[in-house]
Design a protein around this nucleic acid. Sequence first.
DNA 1: ATGAAAGCGCTAACAC
DNA 2: GTGTTAGCGCTTTCAT
Lengths: 334, 334
Amino acid sequence: MDDRQPTLRDVAEAAGVAVSTASRALSRPGRISPRTEARVRDAADRLGYTPSASARALSSGRTSTVALVVPDVTNPFYFGLVRGTGARLRETGYVQVLVDTEESAEAEARALAGLRGTVDGAILASSRLDDDRLVRLASELPVVTVNRTVPGGAAPGVVLDTPSGIVQALEHLASLGHTRVAYAAGPRTSWSDSRRRAVLEPAAARLGLDVTVLGPYAPLRTAGPAAADAALQAQVTALVAFNDLLAFGVLERLEARGVPVPDQLSVVGCDDVFGADLVRPRLTTVALPMERAGRHAADLLVARLSGLGAPPGDPVVLPTHLVIRASTGPAPVR
Amino acid sequence: MDDRQPTLRDVAEAAGVAVSTASRALSRPGRISPRTEARVRDAADRLGYTPSASARALSSGRTSTVALVVPDVTNPFYFGLVRGTGARLRETGYVQVLVDTEESAEAEARALAGLRGTVDGAILASSRLDDDRLVRLASELPVVTVNRTVPGGAAPGVVLDTPSGIVQALEHLASLGHTRVAYAAGPRTSWSDSRRRAVLEPAAARLGLDVTVLGPYAPLRTAGPAAADAALQAQVTALVAFNDLLAFGVLERLEARGVPVPDQLSVVGCDDVFGADLVRPRLTTVALPMERAGRHAADLLVARLSGLGAPPGDPVVLPTHLVIRASTGPAPVR
DNA sequence: ATGAAAGCGCTAACAC
DNA sequence: GTGTTAGCGCTTTCAT
């Protein structure tokens, strides 16, 4: 009685059928007589058979694993996403490989190159790849993007309608009597940032707001103090930050300078990450349904991998909404 | 000119050598004449050759991937760990598969069963598996644990010396004049919690402290309010919480009840997760070198997988330290 | 409906 | 040092 893992051949022998029959019985139920199928299944779990993933991958060309590529696993912005894709992928029989590119396009490209062949497809979150490379990649590997579109619709994607959330924030501020507000921009290379800036102008005009763009700033807490000072200098009564992390740094600096929030300056964040309601005052911010985005992205990819699945087409856009907490209030009277 | 991926055979042909030679040249540099090796490498990247992971896995029996199994990816406690293992694993040529077991021993067992064969080994963080299953698993798959030991030393592991950090917290509180302190315990099944409780008694005696154990509580923010109320009821002047998440909830409740921290009650957390210095007052907490733990765990596993690597032996224990912030202060005079 | 047999791309003996 | 040759365990035509 040797202890090596039983192979399909062992199962076939035990069931008294050919390997091919056993293979069919196990991997494509239905194409086979119920009786033999039952016999095979029976033998299989009597022997404690577990198919070899690599053998299956080699002969079928499919690996049943997909990569989730994020710029920074420790950025709370991605938690929900990781959860969402992970859950859906598991449900559909895929294994998720989490890849951290450390905010570098190079590392992203390298990782993806190494993974080609190892994964059936990839979900790219906030990809740092430039359009060219993204398009090329999409032609070699089934890809779906999150918070980023591929030119020419080469890959399906899901995007969060953050611009709408930002407009909601502006409306909120306008309704509170603010007239001069600042937007602390994110990195110049941020796809999401440029989309938001496009809506700033028209929304401001419509609402009678005077919006000053500050930055760019790194989307980090450590960049916040500079943004806070710039806002103070700009004489605005409200600041909308590129993301919550930046807003945390802003709040910190304002506290240090003794500037009351929201009495003297209202602050709005974006993403509603873990911590947004831990800070004081609790942060008013734009909430993004990231877990849902993850499930959606996984669905899109799985559909493509299954052959079904409409060709790319327009990206799925998910709504966002402003969560009003304590960091925003009426404009100070002057 | 067909566009399928070039195989090792194509490379060999192009270089005018046998496949085996090409294989050696590419995967084990040194065992071959420098000239042929150069020729092969050359041909390889001229053709844009990428080895097939599954073929390699099938014939070698190694997959070059390892699983990192955590109870909850979205728990900030694991961020550093994920980073650390990921970084080290990447450096050593492994791909990391992140598995979220959603706090369930069943899910953990199931995931691991499905992964056997897909991964060369696994790093188990705060495994929810009972000793029996853990031992059995360790006999089937190279495993290293983090924050948990396997009975009989069946698997190497790295443990965080949290008990020492807790003692530091107690010393800190004693030095501030506190005499009655509470410990809000974690889940009864928590290995880490039981280790800490073991040091409570002796440390308290030595320091002349009266320590009351409250709980158990879920290690979540939502469990905090109950812990806060219990502490108030217990008439203590300081509370040490099982983890920061729980402490966050405690702080919240105290704020709601108008209890000044630390003036009336000092609060200590554990883990120093993201957010600990976002709350007000900033949380005094025990900092754990999780990223380092991750790198260490990865090293341990890689060593075992490479054949070298001393047999299990004692777990590596990493020091922790108390980070004093604003949530602790002198005991109130009475 | 089932079986026989040919690989998938690579590694690892084993010869030379 | 390099070539030959078996497989690794499975899926998949192609027959039957």
